[in-house]
Amino acid sequence: MSSPILPNYYLDDPRLRAAEARYTFFLPSMAEIAAVQPNDLVKLLFEYTHETEEYAGERMWVKVGRAEGDHLSGTLGNQPYEPTSPLKPDDAITFERHHIVDIIWNRPDDAPPTSEYREYWERCLVDDCVLNGSEPIEYLYREEPDMTQEGDKHTDSGWRIRGRFNGASDEELAERKASYVALGAVLNRDDSWLAWIDEPAGTRLTRNFETGIYVREE
């Protein structure tokens, strides 16, 4: 009989996530990461390697104790939510600078300037074929926002986004499934229309796939 897999974890490298989700997953700048010193708090991505009950991974804070070049160590700063986690507060954690996804400075006045970037959390309605990457965007328009949902702190942008028609009939297009998601989730898949994102309600755009240019419909 095989032995049970004991609870264990590894630290995920967030750089791949950031590259795949440039508009929804943001990392501190290289200057910020390089400036991390003892007594700063840093957030890391813990991924469990055993079968879990609730969470396959958690983002948790670590208080830095030592920093020697790219190699750091510290102690876990919070209680894991996953019941089967092998970790507990004050456990020793070793990691490297590239594992850091967020920082709370012990001395904020001495910290480098925070990176400035635009976030795209406003919502839009988009064909699922765009979200799953099976079709690029072909047609999009912006109407007056009317889908803001109760409890959602992010408002409806008014953008409505259709995947490539690819010869589909009107009935087939009508049957396509769509999702109400953040603009950033769409941009992660297809950001070819980013230059138009601040255009006003009433804007209608069709993509010319030969030139890659969006043409405004009057």
Rank of each mutant, 00 (worst) to 15 (best):
R97N: 09
V181R: 05
A19H: 10
G57E: 05
Y120W: 15
E96R: 12
D40F: 00
F25P: 02
R15T: 13
A21S: 13
W196G: 00
V36T: 01
K63D: 00
A19I: 10
L76A: 01
L6A: 09
E122R: 15
D12A: 09
P136M: 09
V101F: 01
S73N: 09
R189G: 05
A178V: 12
D12F: 02
R66N: 07
F165C: 13
E47A: 10
I104C: 10
R142Y: 02
M60D: 02
A185Q: 15
P4E: 09
G74S: 08
R160M: 11
R207G: 03
E143L: 10
S169W: 07
R118I: 15
T24K: 00
V36Q: 01
D128K: 14
R107F: 04
A185W: 05
E199C: 08
S169R: 11
D102F: 01
R142P: 04
L27E: 02
A18C: 08
D102N: 07
E150I: 07
S73A: 06
G163L: 05
A201P: 00
D91R: 08
E82R: 11
L72I: 02
G184M: 01
F165K: 13
N208I: 01
D40V: 05
D90K: 10
P38H: 06
P145W: 12
Q37K: 14
R66C: 06
F25I: 07
N188G: 12
R164P: 00
I100K: 01
E172A: 14
I33G: 06
I100R: 01
F26R: 11
L140W: 12
K88C: 11
A35N: 06
A67L: 03
E218D: 11
A67S: 11
R17Q: 13
V42A: 03
Y81R: 14
A174Y: 13
I93L: 03
E138H: 12
E47Y: 02
V181E: 06
H50S: 07
D13E: 07
V130Y: 10
D91E: 12
D190N: 12
P145K: 12
W105K: 07
S169Q: 13
C129L: 14
I93C: 03
G163F: 02
D13Y: 04
Y139I: 07
R17W: 07
T24A: 01
D170C: 08
R123T: 07
E144Q: 13
N208Y: 06
N166W: 02
E116N: 15
